[in-house]
Amino acid sequence: MKPQMITLHINGRTHYVALNPNLTLLVALRDLGYTDVKCGCEKGDCGACAVFLNGVAVNSCLVLAWQADEAEILTAAGLGTSEHPHPLQTAFSDAGAIQCGYCTPGMIISAKALLDQKPHPTDAEIRDAISGNLCRCTGYAQIIQAVQSAAEKMDAGGEG
């Protein structure tokens, strides 16, 4: 098959791109410069490439780019900037939840997906929500703390 033009709406920007049918959304996003979407395994084992696809958190390595035609995609970099970070980004930074940082963008996507549904999760619910995101550095404790702290802040500030 030949490349086909598709439209991707990513972090509020629109891209018209010609892509081969076998390309994953992960590769498409990274080729377009969204390198905050990390590649750790390309088979859905690690969660480093998680993004929102029409509001649902997915591993972008398990989605073909063509399947995302016309979809709204949100990556961790689309949530906030260092000047105006999302409460999860602030909480991860402050709680010591970030070591090497390679799992962080995907982890933040999974955490946001949880808080979108459950603004006041238990620790067990947080563990469950991030169970598809491997972290080799932190041992998860400070990540769970960070999600709890972000939940409190978002509740108080009505943000998110």
């Binding site: 390198t35 990390k38 990556t75 961790a76 260092s82 970070p85 930074s93 970030i98 940082g101």
Partner: peptide, 18 residues
């Protein structure tokens, strides 16, 4: 807050494969 944390949280940190 570690000096390298926020750049990683918001996706500004450019890793070798990026």
């Amino acid at each position: 807050r570690k000096v390298d944390a926020m750049g990683k949280a918001v996706g500004d940190t450019v890793y070798a494969g990026d």
